Simulated scan of single mutants.
Amino acid sequence: TLETAVVTEIPETPTVVATGPLTDGALAADIEKRCGTRLSFFDAAAPIVSFESLDKEKVFFAARYGRGDADYINCPMNKEEYENFYQALITAERAPLHDCDKDAFRVYEGCMPIEVLASRGMDTMRFGPMKPVGLTDPRTGHRPWAVVQLRRENQEGTMYNLVGFQTNLKFPEQKRVFSMIPGLEHAEFHRYGVMHRNSFLDSPRLLDADYHFRGQDGLYFAGQMTGVEGYMESAASGILAGKNLARRLQGKAPLILPRETMMGALAAYISSAPTENFQPMGANMGILPDLPERIRGKQEKYQAYADRGMAALEQYLRDAEQ
């Protein structure tokens, strides 16, 4: 039965909430109350590159002043490299903004696009996300003129985020300009940076891998608000959440797909991401477990991922019905 009405609070009956990233008003307040925290808002995300594609001869692991673990990968620049990068960045073509998104640039100062920050002056980035203080380039023994830092995005260390490089550049421009960063000349981008307004749950703290909300029996969340990014990903999460609610009512075990499948890997990511600053993730090969063998060709490697995922899914579904 289809009922069309305004929903202002989550019912106590078994429910799947799939209200999207623009959930607002009384319903958003109810969700926030149940979550014990406000919804996380963001208007920007930085690009993510694969660790395998980095030039290891040019980058180095280090923490500033040697404090703590060397969790960051550092891409050092000399003065000439920095100035060339700066000129390319401030003249790169940006993606057009919708009218409703334009205010985000004024409101969210902390998520300012890197190209907007750069336009404020030649050295602005060197005193911001590209500050080189506390770092020494092992190749030269000196502090670099500027540094781009990469932060591990997943537990396996196969994906790295460009720290502070949230951007509104067009995707081809991101590839062209960010490939000027030493060590990223041949970088494989798992996700390009995006600039838009959005909201999502702190899912690693709140959701299980079957999209069940840990704070209320029979309550599931699905779609982009869970931290999966993209149309196919959101639809698939809704299918899984719906099936898992039905299975719960039937007394069956939940469907938690294998990590070798894309939706299994995404479900694992949104329910157990190790990063403190949790951000949405779309389908990409970087979140899948590594293949047992090294395959050089990109097309052949991706086909191997797909074949392994299909085999794992078929076996899992056979076992789940027994």
Results as ranks from 00 to 15, higher is better:
45 A>Y: 03
152 R>N: 07
110 G>E: 13
107 V>P: 04
169 L>N: 07
44 A>H: 06
193 G>A: 07
110 G>R: 15
222 A>P: 06
300 E>G: 02
88 A>G: 11
125 M>Q: 09
208 D>C: 14
233 E>S: 07
69 D>T: 12
86 Y>Q: 05
258 P>Q: 06
239 I>R: 10
274 P>T: 00
27 L>R: 01
302 Y>W: 07
155 Q>C: 02
250 Q>G: 10
223 G>K: 04
161 N>M: 10
221 F>S: 01
206 L>N: 01
213 F>R: 06
194 V>Q: 13
39 L>Q: 06
93 E>T: 14
63 A>Y: 00
128 G>N: 12
213 F>Q: 06
132 P>N: 09
310 M>W: 08
141 G>K: 00
106 R>I: 01
110 G>L: 11
6 V>I: 13
198 N>T: 12
312 A>N: 08
266 L>R: 04
153 E>R: 11
66 G>Q: 03
315 Q>M: 02
30 D>A: 07
42 F>P: 00
200 F>L: 08
48 I>C: 09
81 E>K: 03
103 D>T: 10
42 F>V: 05
196 H>S: 15
139 R>D: 12
51 F>Y: 13
271 S>K: 02
42 F>L: 14
69 D>Y: 15
198 N>F: 11
104 A>V: 04
171 F>T: 15
159 M>A: 09
277 N>P: 01
266 L>Y: 04
229 E>S: 06
268 A>Y: 07
151 R>F: 11
297 G>A: 09
15 T>V: 13
116 V>P: 00
91 T>A: 10
136 T>H: 09
104 A>I: 05
224 Q>G: 13
129 P>E: 05
318 R>L: 14
120 R>P: 00
49 V>H: 06
292 P>R: 12
5 A>R: 15
75 C>S: 09
204 P>T: 02
273 A>S: 15
12 E>D: 15
230 G>Y: 03
122 M>V: 01
18 A>N: 04
289 P>V: 00
38 R>F: 02
62 A>R: 03
241 A>D: 04
14 P>S: 08
130 M>V: 03
149 Q>E: 12
66 G>E: 03
58 K>V: 08
216 Q>P: 07
193 G>C: 04
306 A>G: 10
40 S>K: 11
202 D>Q: 12
282 G>E: 02
279 Q>E: 14
37 T>H: 13
145 W>K: 07
73 I>P: 01
116 V>Y: 11
169 L>T: 02
4 T>A: 10
303 Q>W: 04
54 L>H: 04
89 L>C: 06
309 G>P: 00
136 T>E: 14
204 P>V: 02
102 K>D: 10
208 D>S: 15
130 M>Q: 08
160 Y>N: 01
21 P>H: 09
172 P>C: 06
9 E>F: 03
83 E>D: 06
317 L>V: 04
259 R>S: 09
294 R>N: 13
159 M>I: 08
299 Q>Y: 12
231 Y>G: 01
140 T>E: 10
158 T>N: 11
